[in-house]
């Protein structure tokens, strides 16, 4: 067993699950989407990005790219939420934008987890 693989795998999958947790629920209902969960998803996504840095292989590059996509989508969602909170009210329309942004991030995270699993299966060790 490789401890490094455990740690990076843990963070990659956690980023995906947290993201899913935030995304799941009625898209326009603010009560069903916790800001704490978005915060956690963003932080874990950033950590998994840093963990992917420094792998110069072909698959490493794609992993890093998908992770950067997830970060950008989540950051965009967080900024949009903050701006709407302080300028107008967070109605179901605004909530739908935030959740759909996080939905995009979820796709990117799923891609990266699939790639990660594929690479692990391919490895002979």
């Amino acid at each position: 067993m490789n401890l490094q693989k455990v740690i990076s795998g843990f963070f990659f999958i956690l980023a995906m699950t947290l993201n899913f947790g935030f995304f799941y629920g009625d898209i326009g209902n603010p009560l069903l989407h916790s800001s704490y969960e978005l915060f956690a998803a963003l932080v874990i996504s950033l950590i998994s990005t840093v963990l992917k840095i420094g792998d110069k292989t072909q698959i490493g590059s794609v992993l890093l790219a998908s992770s950067l996509v997830a970060d950008i989508q989540l950051i965009a969602a967080a900024i949009f939420w903050t701006v709407t909170t302080y300028t107008s009210t967070v109605d179901s329309e605004a909530m739908a934008t935030i959740v759909s942004l996080s939905g995009g991030a979820l796709l990117a995270n799923i891609t990266s987890v699939i790639l990660y699993i594929g690479e692990t299966l391919k490895s002979k060790r």
Binding site: F39, V43, L46, I47, V50, L51, I53, G54, K56, S61
Partner: peptide, 30 residues
């Protein structure tokens, strides 16, 4: 990906970046 200089910077800054993200996350959440 031929630019070695960028990779050296990123690789060296992995741990510092992780430390900053984790400490910020803990502090903000609290």
């Amino acid at each position: 990906m031929s630019d070695n200089a960028l990779w050296i910077i990123l690789q060296r800054l992995r741990t510092p970046l992780l430390v900053i993200i984790v400490t910020y996350a803990i502090a903000i959440l609290g």
